[in-house]
Write a protein that binds this DNA or RNA. Structure first.
Length: 891
RNA sequence: GCCCUGGUGGCGGAAUUGGUAGACGCGCUAGCUUCAGGUGCUAGUUUCUGUAUGGAAGUGGAAGUUCGAGUCUUCUCCAGGGCACCA
């Protein structure tokens, strides 16, 4: 037997594939299949997570190809972003050079892994040809009212010197830098994602090939709630005080605040609210209006700010709230605190007056920034009411409670029930009560039923160099103008430096200073660049229909071709993108559709989504607690020691591979040592794809052994074992082998179809074992070997080609059709039926599959083990499940 | 606090969706082979009990539905992830 030499075999087949251009995607009229993995950021090194991600996609791509699909499986680079700028600052290299060098460095090992990728479609998002089209899309979105500009309070990351979208702020810190985020007022560009809030939410229901978890996370993020937006009018004495003694009059308000219309769903926190005639609130529980005992405004509410101008104590209170707002532990417990104003409002339905508080738990960013408090049926309101001694009047009576004695105590009741203490709402249930209350308020002209979303518009301005320039010019006379299409792309200048903090574009004279395209006078070019999440929001369409590549007349993508390939049939990537990337991409495809660029009625870019688990590894530390790379650790008689020093090593937790913990295994080392196939096989074999897989040396060796075993099987085999052989009419051991092989086909196929590659792998092992034991050199063996090799091909494609060719396969294994199971070999003539007595297994009998129930029962009763078990008992019942089990009930 | 996921041998994990729990792999044990350098083959490997045919227990825990539960229901514990004052 000759040993399998991956180092020689793998590059050889890679060259054959490349020379024959076999992975190029063409739409030849067969059913199309678009397989895509989230494209990588070119950090310069590939890691095991990449290997696992792309190995999964490759299984799907090769499997679909074998099933006769036209497969599109492209690869490219998500190449804009801050690491390039950080490298520029730290290592004094140019972001562009750094990025393209990294791409080259990553492309080599990726090719060495032998993925069936159509490299002809490769691009990087930092290619001029790509960002030119992104600028064109930006302008198109602008034309179609999907882009707008506003001064807004934004999340400012003081470490990265840039703005962050809401989604990019985690626990009050920047998602990348981890720095505490500050609030800053800036002119910002926004994508109007809220325009599609309802559609994005609705669309989730159609994505039945997405993980439930991701859909839930997006739904939560969009955060739809139905309710009532209404006005509480000032109580008579208040309006006198308010307008008379304090600053405000309706005239000054109107002129300073402009449009009084409420736009609560907008990104802006400076919600413009008309408050001279009352306070606008939003509620999802208008049925509990009769239980209202106060009104609370956000500390950031415009009215609060106005009042604070004349009220030092209130200003102090506001600062107090702001201080608590940023400390993380404080948010955990966040005691509810309030400030009582001298204002009061009129209850809409009855002759009572409610005090107006400023309260720290009311958020300006949601609804109108003001609420009515109903302590009996909202926990926050209850905590607040108990603290400030406000009335707690229950108006929803839970089932089984008595109206006369019911008391909420310290736990607000938020469930269903019957309304009482509520005048015209008495006796209604929750939903009817909500409807009736909304109707009444609408009839009174004090409000309307509305829908609120937590989702806010996507702020995309970034004060960075290494991103797609926003194609806009600011002219003092003509205003904000688009760069004319003929002038695109707005290129990133290359003569920049990072010797000062901030955006180099902002201090680049020839970039920044331009002539107005309208009047020709000196004007200022926009120096902000787009959030890099924009880059990854349409790359899949460019892969599918990109053309011209920077030539004149190039478009973002060919509408017809892109629309044929889209949606992506199977998208694979990490869960960490569940909200950000996947939501933005769904927005983009809707925008592209509505701008007429893409023919995609559903607007959904990804038909199937799979989120794979991480690659983990134990953390190794030495006696001093320093992290040690796994490659430097060896096993010495069951004890882990340092490879060089021999010092003892401690094995710690098994966590995601990360550079900082040094628990990483370099794919390059594995490829060199064992070959690409072994690395691929290992990451797919043991764990289900959606769970984490622990990288172990033993596991790799196991995979390596298996590859050799398959090779041994083939190289020892007779030379006339043509892989496409079909054996007919075998019997005895040959028939058993054929049955095994055909059953394996069915199970392997199913495993791939449902993304349980580990179960496919197990079946491949079984078939290999069966073949290993089968010594005859006949047609049954030839057929089974051919099945085995084709089944292995999506997992270990090089080994498969080598075996296929050794066995005399005429064409490439890559082009060989997926084996089809012969139905007649999947069924057995006889089955083994377990015999149970009172649910306990007592024996088994072998019977023909088509045996009658009576016959089976007779045989079961005659079984000696059954006889022993029912000795002295009376048989009550015999349950015969054909082909499955026989259970005898006796007592 | 709320919402998901999951919990099965020493380990990773199977289980035709209510029908023989532990497939397959790793590890381990015993034997054979001498391939010298991550080797191949054979047998065994849930636990307890018994010389043995066998018996008993067993899928985080408790109860339930059922002829029959890893699978369904309720409660509960633990781990991982997400959201977090969203009115």
């Amino acid at each position: 037997m000759s040993r399998y030499n991956a180092a020689e075999v793998e590059p050889r087949w890679q060259k054959v594939w490349e020379d024959n251009d076999v992975f190029r995607a063409d739409n030849n009229g067969a059913r199309k299949y678009y397989a895509l993995e989230m494209f990588p950021y070119p950090s310069g090194r590939i890691h095991m997570g990449h290997v696992r991600n792309y190995a999964m996609g490759d299984v799907i791509a090769r499997y679909k190809k074998a099933n006769g699909f036209d497969v599109l499986h492209p690869m490219g680079w998500d190449a804009f972003g801050m690491p390039a700028e950080n490298a520029a600052i730290e290592k004094n290299v140019h972001p562009k050079g750094w990025t393209y060098d990294n791409i080259a460095a990553m492309k080599a090992p990726l090719k060495r892994l032998g993925f069936a990728l159509d490299w002809s479609r490769e691009f990087a998002t930092c290619d001029e040809a790509y960002y030119k089209q992104q600028q064109a899309i930006f302008l198109k979105f602008w034309e179609n009212d999907l882009v707008y500009r506003k001064t807004a309070k934004v999340n400012w990351d003081p470490v990265d010197h840039t703005v962050l979208a809401n989604e990019q702020v985690i626990d009050g810190r920047g998602w990348r830098s981890g720095a505490l985020v500050e609030q800053k007022e800036l002119d910002q560009w926004f994508f109007k994602i809220t325009h599609y809030a309802e559609d994005l939410l609705e669309g989730l229901n159609t994505l039945d090939r997405w993980p439930e978890k991701v859909r839930t996370m997006q739904a939560n993020w969009i955060g739809r709630s139905e309710g009532l937006q209404m006005r509480f009018e000032w109580a008579r004495p208040t309006i006198m005080n308010f307008v008379g003694d304090r600053v405000l009059s309706s005239q000054t308000l109107k002129s300073s605040k402009g449009n009084p219309k409420i736009n609560a769903a907008s990104w802006l926190t400076t919600t413009e609210v008309e408050f001279h005639s009352g306070i606008e609130i939003f509620t999802t529980r208008p049925d509990t209006l009769f239980g209202a005992s106060f009104i609370a405004l956000s500390p950031d509410h415009p009215l609060t700010k106005k009042l604070a101008e004349d009220d030092e104590a209130l200003e102090t209170f506001r600062k107090e709230c702001a201080r608590i707002g940023t400390g993380e532990e404080a948010i955990e417990k966040a005691e509810k605190i309030g400030y009582r104003t001298s204002l009061t409002v009129q209850h809409p339905f009855q002759d009572t007056v409610l005090p107006v508080y400023i309260a720290n738990f009311v958020l300006m960013g949601y609804g109108t920034g003001a609420i009515f408090g109903c302590p009996a049926h909202d926990q926050r309101d209850l905590d607040f009411a108990r603290k400030y001694d406000l009335p707690v009047l229950p108006v929803v009576l839970p089932e089984g409670e008595d109206a006369a004695s019911y008391d909420v105590g310290t736990e607000a009741y938020i469930g269903e029930g019957t309304l009482y203490n509520s005048d015209f709402l008495d006796g209604l249930n929750k939903d009817d009560g909500i409807r009736a209350a909304i109707e009444k308020i609408e009839a009174m002209g004090q409000g309307t039923g509305t829908v609120q979303y937590r989702l806010r518009d996507w702020g995309v301005s970034r004060q960075r160099y290494w991103g797609c320039p926003i194609p806009v010019i600011h002219c003092e006379d003509c205003g904000v103008l688009p760069v004319p299409e003929a002038d695109l792309p707005v290129k990133l200048p290359e003569d920049i430096n990072f010797d000062k903090p901030g955006n180099p574009l902002d201090r680049h004279p020839t970039f920044k200073n331009v002539d107005c395209p309208n009047c020709g006078k000196p004007a200022r070019r926009e120096t902000d660049t787009l959030d890099t999440f924009a880059d990854s929001s349409w790359y899949f369409a460019r892969f599918a229909g990109g053309s011209g590549n920077g030539q004149p007349g190039d478009k973002p993508f060919d509408k017809k071709i892109a629309s044929e390939w889209l949606p992506v049939d199977q998208y694979i990537g990490g869960v960490e993108h569940a909200v950000l990337h996947l939501l933005y991409a769904r927005f983009f495809t809707r925008g592209l559709r509505d701008c007429g660029l893409l023919d995609l009625p559903s607007g959904e870019p990804f038909d199937g989504l799979f989120t794979q688990g991480m690659v983990t590894h134990a953390i190794y530390t030495d006696a001093d607690g320093n992290f040690v790379m796994p490659a430097d650790v060896t096993d010495n008689d069951g004890k882990l020691v340092h490879l060089e020093t021999g010092a003892p090593i401690h094995k710690g937790d098994i966590v995601k591979m990360s550079k900082s913990k040094k628990n990483v295994v370099d794919p390059n080392d594995i490829i060199e040592g064992y070959g690409a196939d072994v690395a691929r096989w290992f990451v797919l074999s043991d764990s289900p794809p959606d769970r984490d897989v622990e990288w172990t040396e033993a596991g790799v060796i196991g995979a390596w052994r298996f590859a050799n075993k398959v090779w041994a099987l083939v190289s020892d085999s007779s030379s006339n074992h043509r892989p496409m052989t079909v054996a007919n009419g075998a019997e005895g051991a040959a028939l058993e082998l054929r049955k095994k092989a055909h059953k394996a086909i069915a199970k392997i196929t199913h495993g791939i179809d449902v993304f349980r590659f580990n179960t496919s792998v197990a079946q491949i092992y079984e078939l290999t074992n069966a073949l290993g034991k089968y010594k005859a050199n006949d047609a049954a063996k030839a057929e089974s070997l051919g099945i085995l090799i084709r089944a292995i091909a999506p997992f270990m494609p090089h080994l498969a080609e080598e075996c296929w060719s050794k066995l005399g396969g005429k064409e490439l294994c890559y082009h060989a059709p997926w084996p089809v199971a012969d139905e007649s070999l999947l069924t057995e003539d006889t089955v083994t039926l377990p015999l149970q007595v009172n649910g306990k297994r007592r024996g088994e009998i072998s019977v023909p599959v088509d045996i009658s129930k009576d016959e089976a029962e007779k045989l079961a009763m005659a079984d000696p083990a059954v006889q022993r078990a029912i000795d002295g008992l009376t048989v009550r019942k015999v349950i015969v499940v054909p082909g499955r089990i026989i259970n005898i009930v006796a007592s």
